[in-house]
Each structure stands twice: as C-alpha cells, then as structure tokens.
Computed example of a mutant assay.
Amino acid sequence: MDFWDEGLFLLVLFLANTIQAVTGFAGTLLAMAPSILLLGPDQAKVILNIMAFLSSLFIVSSSLAYVAWRQLLRIVLYMAVGMIAGIYLYQRLPLSFLLPFYGFFVLAVALKGLCTDKEINLSPGLSRFILLGAGIMHGLFVSGGALLVIYAVAAFKDKHVFRATIASVWVVLNVPLMFHDYQQGFYDNQTLLLTGLSLLPLILATYAGTRIHDKINQRIFMKLSYVLLLLSGMLLLF
C-alpha cells in the first residue's frame, strides 16, 4: 500500500464516518467496498470494525437516554446467532465468490432505499429473518447495518431513538469481532499503524456528523447515503 492508497482510505473513512455519526449506521457499509479495494478484505475489516466501535461508542455515550433497551437486547441476540454463521462462511468461502455477492447485496439495498418511501411493516417471522441476515452480513463484512436498518425503520419512529439504539448494537457486537480478528493474527504492525492514523479523521467526522444530525433533513441525507451505497456496490462489481 502506498501513500496515495493510505490518503484515499483516510478520506473514505472521514466521509463514511460523518454519515455514521448522523444516522447511527451505514458508515462501515459505505467504506467497506473502496477500503477492500485499497487495503484488502482482512485489513479493511479490522480497521473499519475498530472505527465503527469508537464512533458508535461516542454516539451512545452522548445519547444514552434514547436507547430502546428491550429492542437492543432482541436485536443483539438474533444478530449474534447470525454473526457466528457469517464468520464461519468468511473463513471457508473464496473471496472470488464473497466480493461479488457483497456487491450485489449493497446494490440491492441501495436500489430499495432509492426507489421506495413506503412505511415498512414487518411480521414477527420476517423480523427474525432480517435480524439473522443482518448478523450474517456483519460477521462477513462488518456491514449488517443495511439489513438492520430495514428492521429499525419499522421499529423506531423517532430519529434519536433510531440513531442511539442502532449505534448501541455496534458497540456490543463489534467487540467479539475485534477479539476474533486478534485471534486470527490480523493485528499486525502495519494495521495498527494505519488504525492510529485513522483516529484523526474519525474524530473530525464524528464531530461534523454530530453537528449535522440535529440540523439536516434526515430523509434527504438517507437518500444521499443510498446513492453512495450504489456507487460502492458498483465498484465491487466492475
């Protein structure tokens, strides 16, 4: 990885985590595709997982009163089961299969978000299926937020509750992923150095996104997020 790759990665990290600070999700999903191309999948997963944990921890610490605790427990339990399956698949399926699969997944979520404004109502069975799927995607690419947001839009009508509860999910679930990555030997010197360099854009992005959160029309911002997702998915496929 050269100087330009590092610089582009830090720029991607800043832009994606600004969105993460505004919405409580989508930061890793937006950053993962270009980061995989710049760093490779293992290093991208490690660094973005740590950054998502830190960003979410800040959101939760500043909006703890808005966390829907019973919903948080339900989400974490179902997603944890899915994460076990996702980690298993990541270790055993070839990258040539996983990356196009991930690209199609991102494109599908982006197109759905861009093409509909309908209120989402989910049956209990479909809710469980979506949460398990979100866990699988989080175990694969630290990117379960795309599916989780489908559940969250139906469950949370207040944007503050939405943001605080979704961020709480990443605080809880990213810890076992960090431990797993450490066991796999992914925390080498180069990764730790780039993680340290990533802290400054993360701090700036979290500050900017938090300021934007209370001022911006969230519907417009979510549409912009989906446009960026569309571009990320296309990068993986083409």
Results as ranks from 00 to 15, higher is better:
residue 236 L to G: 00
residue 84 I to V: 09
residue 94 P to T: 09
residue 91 Q to M: 13
residue 38 L to Q: 03
residue 166 I to L: 10
residue 195 T to Y: 03
residue 212 I to T: 12
residue 114 L to F: 04
residue 12 V to A: 08
residue 42 D to Q: 07
residue 34 P to W: 00
residue 43 Q to W: 10
residue 128 R to D: 05
residue 139 G to R: 11
residue 168 S to A: 12
residue 57 L to T: 12
residue 113 G to C: 12
residue 35 S to Q: 10
residue 121 N to K: 15
residue 33 A to K: 02
residue 89 L to G: 10
residue 29 L to M: 06
residue 181 D to K: 13
residue 11 L to M: 06
residue 58 F to I: 06
residue 152 A to M: 00
residue 139 G to A: 03
residue 8 L to V: 13
residue 30 L to R: 08
residue 210 T to D: 10
residue 85 A to C: 10
residue 137 M to I: 05
residue 231 L to S: 08
residue 187 Y to C: 14
residue 33 A to T: 03
residue 157 K to L: 05
residue 130 I to M: 05
residue 127 S to Q: 11
residue 180 H to S: 02
residue 26 A to T: 05
residue 89 L to Q: 13
residue 211 R to Q: 05
residue 59 I to V: 12
residue 201 P to D: 04
residue 145 G to D: 01
residue 28 T to A: 07
residue 236 L to M: 13
residue 11 L to T: 15
residue 160 H to L: 13
residue 86 G to T: 11
residue 150 I to L: 11
residue 45 K to G: 10
residue 14 F to L: 14
residue 140 L to M: 04
residue 123 S to L: 03
residue 148 L to P: 15
residue 200 L to H: 01
residue 133 G to S: 11
residue 105 F to T: 15
residue 173 L to I: 02
residue 64 L to S: 07
residue 22 V to E: 01
residue 50 I to C: 14
residue 70 R to M: 15
residue 52 A to P: 04
residue 217 N to I: 05
residue 27 G to L: 13
residue 21 A to I: 02
residue 237 L to S: 14
residue 156 F to H: 04
residue 47 I to T: 08
residue 220 I to S: 09
residue 219 R to G: 07
residue 12 V to G: 11
residue 72 L to M: 03
residue 18 T to I: 02
residue 58 F to K: 11
residue 74 R to M: 14
residue 126 L to M: 13
residue 101 F to E: 01
residue 191 T to V: 04
residue 161 V to A: 09
residue 182 Y to G: 00
residue 152 A to Q: 01
residue 22 V to H: 01
residue 27 G to R: 15
residue 109 V to R: 06
residue 192 L to E: 06
residue 155 A to L: 07
residue 170 W to K: 03
residue 110 A to C: 09
residue 68 A to Y: 14
residue 39 L to C: 02
residue 223 K to I: 07
residue 237 L to A: 09
residue 225 S to G: 12
residue 186 F to W: 14
residue 78 Y to F: 15
residue 121 N to A: 11
residue 199 L to Y: 04
residue 229 L to R: 01
residue 161 V to Q: 10
residue 23 T to K: 02
residue 194 L to Q: 03
residue 136 I to N: 09
residue 35 S to P: 00
residue 200 L to S: 00
residue 83 M to H: 06
residue 140 L to G: 06
residue 42 D to L: 04
residue 230 L to M: 13
residue 200 L to Q: 01
residue 133 G to W: 03
residue 230 L to Q: 03
residue 7 G to I: 09
residue 4 W to T: 08
residue 190 Q to R: 11
residue 48 L to S: 12
residue 235 L to A: 12
residue 20 Q to K: 11
residue 194 L to V: 03
residue 95 L to V: 11
residue 155 A to P: 12
residue 16 A to I: 10
residue 67 V to C: 01
residue 5 D to H: 13
residue 101 F to H: 09
residue 134 A to D: 05
residue 151 Y to W: 07
residue 183 Q to V: 02
residue 167 A to K: 00
residue 210 T to E: 10
residue 30 L to F: 05
residue 101 F to N: 04
